[in-house]
Design a binder for these strands. Structure first.
Length: 499
RNA sequence: GGCCCCGUCGUCUAGCCAGGUCCAGGACACAUGCCUUUCACGCAUGCAACACGGGUUCGAAUCCCGUCGGGGUCACCA
């Protein structure tokens, strides 16, 4: 039998990285076993704009390279893949369970249940709904009156349910701990524990891999599978993703706080930052999963080859952006120049550093030279702005710290004047010649190379850090360098602290 | 509160199921040094953990019990 896994996002438009990881584990398991991965949209309680939100989610999966064999856009033989379009299936299943006596009509009122819950709360015990004994006549009368009813599953008492979870191991759960749960609301809409089991059964899902918050929910679902006479899928509950540096679960309520700390929790934020899909994929796979305790870098193909559920950790993993960033650097080293140029363009455009919509040939050539000069310093595509902005502008903003450290020193303005002359005279104005000229200058003037190179770097680029100086001088060009030196000298003169 | 899951360096983890080879291995981060015109890369070194307490055993990170801590669930949410 072919292994089939699924991921069922609700169409909010956002993909939490924890969710992406769950989807990834499902996808990896399916691909490892040459099985199928299914996408099912969990829109049972959503209203409008679902399509738009779904598109965003699909785009996210496409970006990171998770493809689906059945689901939105691609269809499949066990559709529809929107739960909102599967109402008939749920209705039929519910009717069967009423017929077989597993499910009954519950005419209880909101007020009655609220009272029971309050009592349970007071007595510090769990609230569990149990079937109220009512006569057939009474039920018939209620129905004739048009009194609304929910459909509830009658949980069999005194049984011990055993789940053979592929990650958590054997977990036992007493049915006495489970209240009679609602499967269909009075308005006919199904509830998660019911719809999910019905769908998994109908779609012939063989492995349900999901977040561990569903572990307890699995037991009512087990009962539904059994009542339906459906074959039971295997279950694997993966631990949650905790906040960086903590064991506490990431919380939606703390989003603003994370934002402040620079912690990114949504997939689109990583895309916007210019991360590489292969790096995020690698990172997410290693978060809670390991191969041999040694290997850190995995390509997509290696992940598919080596991923197994028994290597998934049973305890929570906390999100580690430092590790992601390192992996990002590792993967960026493997990216060809052409793709780097493509990756960097949107960021330059956003900053208004390119003339038009698409870069001209000469702009592309310039970007290419900048990227080559940047080398390994470019970790994410957005780094082009932080590290290389000065290549694309006429004027430069001098970094105060760099100015203080390299320019506000005795004799620097005078030296800059001499270096300006040197740049003016160096012929040809190329890397090798410039390098020799600056070396000769340092030697002749009795200065250490660092005392010449660093001020010159700050004067011509505005920054204390960056690519090799001669790369910068050449790419920025003679005239622009000289204008910037003039600007630097003017700035130093004005403040009068150049002595 | 009942029930369920989880607890190895700051972090990701190996080791745990089949107790000794583990005074606990790898990686990120951090620190130091080398390379070097800065930064980044690279190389080297260092710092750093079996949550706690009992028990079983010749021997426990590994098995058992308890405590503490984290998480989930107990909805006509998903």
């Amino acid at each position: 039998m072919t292994l089939r896994t699924r991921f069922a996002p609700s169409p909010t438009g956002f993909l939490h990285i924890g969710g992406v990881r769950t989807a990834l584990f499902n996808w990896l398991l399916a691909r490892h076993h040459a099985g199928q991965f299914i996408l099912r949209i969990d829109d049972t309680d959503q209203q409008r704009h679902v399509e738009d939100a779904v598109q965003k989610i699909l785009d996210g999966f496409r970006w990171i390279g998770i493809d689906w064999d059945e689901g939105p856009e691609v269809g499949g033989s066990s559709g529809p893949y929107y739960q909102s379009q599967r109402q008939d299936l749920y209705r039929q299943a519910a009717a069967r369970l009423v017929e077989s006596g597993h499910v009954y009509k519950d005419f209880s009122t909101e007020a009655e249940r609220a009272a029971d819950k309050a009592a349970a709360e007071r007595e510090k015990r769990a609230y569990r709904f149990r079937r109220q004994p009512i006569t057939d006549e009474q039920a018939a009368q209620y129905e004739a009156e048009g009194r609304p009813f929910a459909l509830r599953f009658q949980v069999p008492p005194g049984r011990k349910l055993v789940l053979h979870d592929l990650i958590k191991g054997n977990v036992e759960f007493a049915t006495d701990e489970i209240g009679d749960f609602v499967i269909v609301r009075p308005d006919g809409s199904p509830l998660y524990n019911f719809a999910s089991a019905v769908d998994d059964a109908a779609m012939k899902i063989t492995h349900v891999v999901r977040a561990e918050e569903h572990l307890s929910n699995t037991f009512p679902q087990l009962l539904v599978f059994e009542a339906l006479g459906a074959e039971l899928p295997a279950f694997a509950h993966i631990p949650y993703v905790a906040e960086p540096g903590s064991r506490s679960k990431m919380s939606k309520r703390k989003l603003a706080e994370y934002e402040k700390l620079g912690i990114l929790v949504y997939l689109h934020q990583y895309i916007e930052k210019g991360y590489l899909p292969e790096a995020l994929l690698n990172y997410l796979a290693r978060l809670g999963w390991s191969f041999d305790g040694e290997q850190e870098v995995f390509s997509r193909a290696e992940l598919i080859e080596k991923f197994t559920l028994d290597r998934v950790n049973s305890s929570p993993a906390s999100h580690d952006q430092d590790k992601l960033f390192w992996l990002e650097g590792e993967w960026m080293k493997t990216v060809r120049l052409e793709r780097k140029v493509e990756g960097v363009v949107p960021f330059l455009r956003r900053e208004g550093l390119l003339a038009g919509e698409t870069p001209t040939d000469s702009e592309r050539a310039l970007i290419g030279r900048v990227i080559e000069a940047l080398g390994d310093r470019l970790k994410t595509f957005s780094d082009i702005i932080k590290l290389g902005r000065f290549f694309f502008t006429e004027d430069v903003t001098f970094d105060p710290d760099a100015v203080k450290k390299r320019l506000r020193k005795d004799g620097v303005p005078a030296m800059l004047a001499e270096l300006d002359t040197l740049l003016a005279r160096t012929e040809p104005y190329d890397l090798a010649t410039l390098e020799k000229a600056v070396h000769d200058y340092a030697e002749k003037s009795g200065r250490k190379m660092g005392d010449v190179v660093n001020p010159l770097r700050v004067a011509t680029t505005g920054q204390g850090v960056g690519p090799g100086l001669y790369d910068c001088l050449v790419i920025v060009g003679r005239d622009r360098c000289r204008r910037r030196i003039a600007a630097a000298r003017a700035m130093l003169g004005e403040s009068g602290s150049a002595t």
